[in-house]
Simulated assay, not measured.
Amino acid sequence: MLTITSTAFAPNGPIPKDHTCEGDDRSPPLAFASVPPGTQSLALIVDDPDAPDPRAPKRTWVHWVVYNLPPATTALSAGAELPPGALAGKNDWGRDVYGGPCPPIGRHRYFHKLYALDMILPDLGTPTKAELERAMEGHVLEEAHLVGTYEKAA
C-alpha cells in the first residue's frame, strides 16, 4: 500500500515552523514507499480544508501542486528542487512552488496527498489543483495521505 511520511512531523502532528510562513517557508522532507506496480508517475497535492477559520471553513487553500514525479522517487528533501521530469502546478498564491502553512486564525490541518498514476501526464503548463485532478481522473492506482497541523504563534 502506497505511503507518504515525513521526518519533520508525525501523522496528525504539528508541522515545524521552518516549513511555514513564520519560518523559512520551505517544503518539509517527504518519503514515499510501496509504490504499486504499473505506476508511471506520482502526483502530490498539499492543501488546507480549514481556510480561513477551522471553526467555519469556507474553502480549501492549495499550498503545493506537483505532477509527473518519476515513480522511482522515494523522497523529497526539505526545500528540495523537483527531480527531472517533475512539473509544478499553481498554488492559491498563484505561484508554482511550495507555499507553507500560514493560517489567519486557529489550528489548521494540512493534507499531503500522494497519488500513484498509471500514466505520465501531458505537460499541463502550471495547472491548478482542480485541473490536475481532472487530468488524473481514471488514472489513479492508489493514493496516500499525511496530515500535519499548524497554528501561528500568538
Score class of each variant (00 low, 15 high):
Val65Thr: 00
Asp48Ala: 10
Ala72Asn: 12
Asn68Glu: 04
Asp50Thr: 14
Trp64Gln: 06
Pro70His: 12
Gly79Gln: 09
Leu82Ser: 01
Leu82Lys: 02
Ser77Asp: 06
Val46Trp: 00
Arg59Met: 08
Trp61Gln: 04
Arg55Phe: 01
Val46Glu: 03
Pro54Asn: 05
Gly79Pro: 06
Leu69Thr: 02
Tyr67Asn: 01
Asp53Leu: 02
Asp53Met: 00
Thr60Ile: 07
Tyr67His: 07
Ala56Cys: 01
Leu69Asp: 06
Ala80Gln: 15
His63Leu: 13
Val65Ala: 08
Asp47Ser: 11
Pro49Phe: 09
Leu76Phe: 07
Pro70Trp: 11
Thr73Glu: 05
Arg55Gln: 10
Glu81Asp: 04
His63Ala: 10
Val62Cys: 09
Arg59Phe: 05
Pro54Lys: 09
Val66Gly: 08
Thr60Gly: 13
Arg59Asp: 07
Leu69Ile: 07
Asp48Arg: 13
Ala78Leu: 14
Pro49Leu: 09
Asp47Val: 01
Ser77Gln: 15
Glu81Trp: 04
Pro49Lys: 14
Leu76Glu: 00
Pro70Thr: 08
Val46Cys: 02
Val65Asn: 03
Leu76Ile: 01
Ser77Glu: 13
Pro52Tyr: 14
Ser77Thr: 15
Ala72Met: 15
Ala72Glu: 15
Val62Pro: 11
Ser77Cys: 11
Leu82Gln: 03
Arg55Ser: 15
His63Tyr: 09
Asp48Gly: 10
Thr60Arg: 15
Asp48Thr: 15
Asp48His: 02
Leu69Met: 12
Ala80Lys: 11
Leu76Met: 13
Trp64Cys: 06
Ala72Pro: 03
Pro54His: 11
Leu76Pro: 10
Val65His: 02
Ala56Trp: 08
Leu82Ala: 01
Asp53Cys: 01
Ala75Asn: 14
Asp47Trp: 11
Pro49Thr: 00
Gly79Ile: 08
Pro52Cys: 07
Leu76Trp: 09
Pro52Ala: 14
Lys58Trp: 00
Val46Gly: 00
Val65Phe: 01
His63Thr: 10
Thr60Trp: 08
Ala75Asp: 02
Ala72Ile: 05
Lys58Val: 08
Asp50Met: 12
Lys58Ser: 12
Thr60Gln: 10
Val62Gln: 05
Pro49Met: 08
Asp53Ser: 07
Pro57Thr: 13
Ala72Trp: 10
Ala51Tyr: 13
Thr74Asp: 13
Trp64His: 12
Asp48Pro: 04
Ala80Pro: 04
Arg55Ala: 13
Pro70Lys: 02
Pro57Tyr: 12
Val62His: 06
Leu69Phe: 10
Asp48Glu: 14
Glu81Met: 05
Ala72Lys: 06
Ser77Arg: 09
Asp47Phe: 06
Leu76Cys: 05
Val62Leu: 08
Asn68Ile: 07
